[in-house]
Design a protein around this nucleic acid. Sequence first.
DNA 1: AATGAATGAGTCTTCATTCAT
DNA 2: AATGAATGAAGACTCATTCAT
Lengths: 207, 207, 207, 207
Amino acid sequence: MNEPRLGLAAHSARRRAELVRAAYELVTTRGYRAIGVDDIVLRAGVSHGTFYNYFANKRDILDAVLDHCFDVIRERLIGEDAIPASLDEFRARFGRIVDRCYDLVAGEPGLVNFLLFEAASIDDQVIERVMHNAQIDGAAAAQEVGLGIEHGYLDPRLDTRIAGEVMLSVLMSALLAAVHSGSVGLTRERVRTQLTDFLARALGVEP
Amino acid sequence: MNEPRLGLAAHSARRRAELVRAAYELVTTRGYRAIGVDDIVLRAGVSHGTFYNYFANKRDILDAVLDHCFDVIRERLIGEDAIPASLDEFRARFGRIVDRCYDLVAGEPGLVNFLLFEAASIDDQVIERVMHNAQIDGAAAAQEVGLGIEHGYLDPRLDTRIAGEVMLSVLMSALLAAVHSGSVGLTRERVRTQLTDFLARALGVEP
Amino acid sequence: MNEPRLGLAAHSARRRAELVRAAYELVTTRGYRAIGVDDIVLRAGVSHGTFYNYFANKRDILDAVLDHCFDVIRERLIGEDAIPASLDEFRARFGRIVDRCYDLVAGEPGLVNFLLFEAASIDDQVIERVMHNAQIDGAAAAQEVGLGIEHGYLDPRLDTRIAGEVMLSVLMSALLAAVHSGSVGLTRERVRTQLTDFLARALGVEP
Amino acid sequence: MNEPRLGLAAHSARRRAELVRAAYELVTTRGYRAIGVDDIVLRAGVSHGTFYNYFANKRDILDAVLDHCFDVIRERLIGEDAIPASLDEFRARFGRIVDRCYDLVAGEPGLVNFLLFEAASIDDQVIERVMHNAQIDGAAAAQEVGLGIEHGYLDPRLDTRIAGEVMLSVLMSALLAAVHSGSVGLTRERVRTQLTDFLARALGVEP
DNA sequence: AATGAATGAGTCTTCATTCAT
DNA sequence: AATGAATGAAGACTCATTCAT
């Protein structure tokens, strides 16, 4: 009846994902400390005990929530852009990503706030987890830099790994700007222009 | 030894201040939610019940902690600068304040983080309290703008109240930049230059 | 031994009833204010936390205790008398109920005292709860009056609802008399006679 | 300055009386268990510590409050009637006392309730204290019976002590009736008539 | 795997009492 | 005698975790 025919493993994975999803929504809206296992299982529609079949304890699900956060961020920011073939396309692509930062902050209120603000204060392992995810994205960014070098519009002398991290840092600035979009002189357009200019100057081949 | 010779009222005020100080240190390092009344009284060296002679409940001391936060900020940021008599002095003075933002973040780690991140998530009254303090500082800033207009280096058409708030916003940007000083392209010098330039352009008399 | 074979719901209901029973015994012997949740769970043989699985707080169980009080009263006072078919039988039946008031006071010392004395001082909702129960009994009494009218031994002009309430008031007098049975001139026999006479005169058909 | 010229002992007695008065008002309106030493000293306008200069602990003042309760009752019930010289005057005097029971319940709401309801549940010593006061009043009543016998309108075969206690019991019934004046068939007039009749029949000389 | 009742350590809060001044 | 700050035992309530079914 319920979700008929599902391999046990698949069912289990779905259950787990439901719990993570529920926890994600609660954590980003109300904060990790403010919610209880009660809230999570209530929202997921399972019993108290079931939670402990999937996670060792409350802290344990936080890792999965953090991973989910980055999944959401990637999904929302990357988009389905074509691989840029010129510096202008590279610049345009990054400009769209900056715009998507604003959309992300608007569409998932609390997500960025949670990562920037509460997460780090939970414990040191959170920071490790965030770093771990940042490394994954850094590697992806490094790969894009590599492509850019191959296409000839990024400076071939760049260390792709470092350049990838710079790209992430700039993205971080965009997210920060989006969160504090009220701050002085930080219109969306200015942020987009300044950050894309910065990246193009910093990574592009010299003219 | 017992702190000889102190009026009752003075003693009471000091005791209260000790509790606030203890709570301030704990809140800015470990977060409001993460600490208990136990931690506060342990650090203040008083008994459990004494806490409740000075504060109605755990939430109650938070207001005092917030006020203390702003006291610390004012003390650390204002400095003993002479009243600026020219736009250049005004600009220099604000540049020093931006520098002090970085010193503040370094010297009181956790203070700015707490205000920016956890505070707003505690309850709505926190926001009111922060706004209340911001208004006080806004008034002070407005007064400085007034002086600048009298001295002839700030634009006389300015609404001093609004201009004061703009100054605070810019200060906020400086604090944000100081907290996330790792972010790309946000060196202390660039931040100082850009923000002072912005203020000078925005508030100064037209050349 | 573990109370083998019990549906979950049944077990839950039993547990709850055990807590109510324990609280009832403590409240009627020592008073609501004088006992703690500790006392209740100790007597019920469960842990502290279990209490809060069944009741929101200490005040919450009081409602259940009050209802239990009325259950006990009904069980003890009603008896298994045949439905009276004449005024004499009606009078006899009420006389037996008056007697049972004395038995109730003897058998459940503290119950009537609690209801008459402490209950009202706890809060206003207690009074509502008592009234609610009184209305239930009033309806039952009204029904009996209706039967009496049908049988022709009670005055057909009676408003059954009001007459039911009068019956309750008289019962209340009986309980009061039973509690203060030491008072002068209030022998059980006199009380029984006077109250049954009163009711018969007040409700019976005119001779 | 304050209350100039008072012997120390007199001042002390007045202080003590103020505390008892404050406690009396609080106890009869809100109940002994529901109030704290805080409430008492606040109402009396003295400090926390002062309380313990006059009473060993919270329980200690209760004895004084109980005595004060009986002082109030005596003052309110006795009145300034002339000593009765005939059975009719005796009967009239007692009728007035019954009326004053109703006035007492109206004028000192909570006093009778407290004595009848909460007092006994505090501890066993309260009961002793009440009994002690009852004995005092019983002695006074016995004395009145003695006078009645001397005047020839009360039965000379009476044991005055026992007859005094009967008078108190009847008074108790009057108070109970006054408190529960809503109960069926217990109009003030009926109560007065029945109780005075009872006393006259029980104590008067045979016709 | 799922359930949810049971647990108990931990937290906040109250209040009678003590004591140095 | 008066003061009121300090105390700490006690009570109410929460919630992460366990476990028998």
